[in-house]
Nucleic acid binder design. Structure first.
Lengths: 212, 212
DNA sequence: TGGAAACCATACTGATGGGTATTTTGCAAG
DNA sequence: CTTGCAAAATACCCATCAGTATGGTTTCCA
């Protein structure tokens, strides 16, 4: 109502918006930690608020429902994976090197978003139908692109695969499942792990290079 | 109290016990279907009872809590996987053939227990701590045995792997994740799928056999 | 410095659902 | 037919929690 309504000046004002964004971010982080540790349905928004030192209405000022918070969390892991996919596909290298890049980038995306990936996997039934559909579409997009990459490698004579569809699903599963067993301070660094896994995936694709 | 108390005559009486077992089994099946479709926390025991044409106390006559029902469901998938593992290890064949047997058997176990595996993966946070620990131990046992098999293959010069631990986790993930994408009446039969996946896993292990 | 608006806390509501006390039913033996 | 018992149904309790109405407090600007 006020004349000095800033919300119309798109792209301009910031301080306030940045504060708002920060609060959203902190809320997502706190919620993700608890959803990851205890599960979505067993986590109350009051518990989330408590770990942040605020109360429930604080959350409702930034998210319209618990499910919206969940959707925000779930979107992150999928988006990161898709970014890795796009980066690999955009590189001007052979299919073999694209698959290596993808494997490393995808695993890195999954593991540096471990909580978010875990929550998506476990709690997808709690998403609003619209969000569920949106995320499913992103996953299908990822799978489609992976099949395309594998097929290109087969056509180029670099990969040897009977069935690129099954291979794509297998690779997707191998990497996606890593959220289950990965521990941040384990024996191998994320880098070393990414190299190992990329080697396994290339071997699976039938690339004619004996294991490094 | 009655003199003719049959419950003491272990190994004998059956009809009544079989009826009880049947009721438990039907309850588990109905619950698994709903837990799988809607999620554990979003499924009420009343809904489970309704699909069976009974009411809630019926369930409480056979299970002491909702969590016990969940534990029963979750145990099935892990047990089936372990059976497949034992069968492969017991066979008197080369590591390569053991790994092929294991791959086929493990995938078959996962996919013919698709609902149970999905529920275990998604709802493990809702298990009683004791059940969670018991199932975690079974999974660790499975992983340990898989590492052992891979190491034996490396030692025999049949497999070529830098890091059997990472390879074991990768194989475990590849197969376990299949519950996500498998559809019973899809393009490939379970048999054909098992062959495909076994081929991919052998390639990943560095077995020197060009893809079939 | 005044004033308003955004923001957040306190306190509440309403519905849901796990679990149970009590009653009823049905079956089996006498 | 009747008595007895197991098992299931009806009806209930109560703790929990998503979401909200209201009132105080800080912040931002004139």
């Amino acid at each position: 109502m006020a004349l000095s309504d800033r919300s119309e000046m798109v792209g301009f004002p910031t301080i306030r918006d940045e504060v708002t964004a920060l609060k959203r971010e902190r809320t997502v982080e706190a919620a993700a930690q608890l959803f990851y540790d205890r599960g979505y349905e067993k986590t109350t928004l009051e518990a989330v608020a408590e770990t942040m030192g605020v109360t429930k209405p604080f959350i409702y000022n930034h998210f319209k429902s618990k499910a919206e918070l969940l959707a925000d969390i779930c979107t992150r892991g999928v988006s990161a994976s898709l970014v890795a996919m796009e980066a690999a596909l955009a590189a001007e290298v052979s299919p073999t090197e694209k698959l290596r890049m993808l494997s490393r980038g995808f695993l890195t995306a999954v593991l540096s978003n471990q909580r978010y990936i875990a929550i998506l996997t476990r709690e997808e039934k709690s998403l609003e139908p619209a969000d569920f559909e949106r995320l499913s579409a992103l996953r299908r997009d990822f799978d489609r692109k992976l099949v395309g990459l594998l097929q290109a490698g087969v056509d180029a004579g670099e990969f040897h695969l009977d069935d690129p569809d099954v291979a794509a699903l297998s690779i997707g599963g191998l990497v996606s499942w890593a959220y289950v067993w990965y521990r941040p301070h384990g024996r191998l660094s994320l880098e070393a792990l990414a190299d190992e896994v990329a080697g396994l995936i290339l071997a699976m694709a039938g690339v004619q290079t004996p294991t490094a």
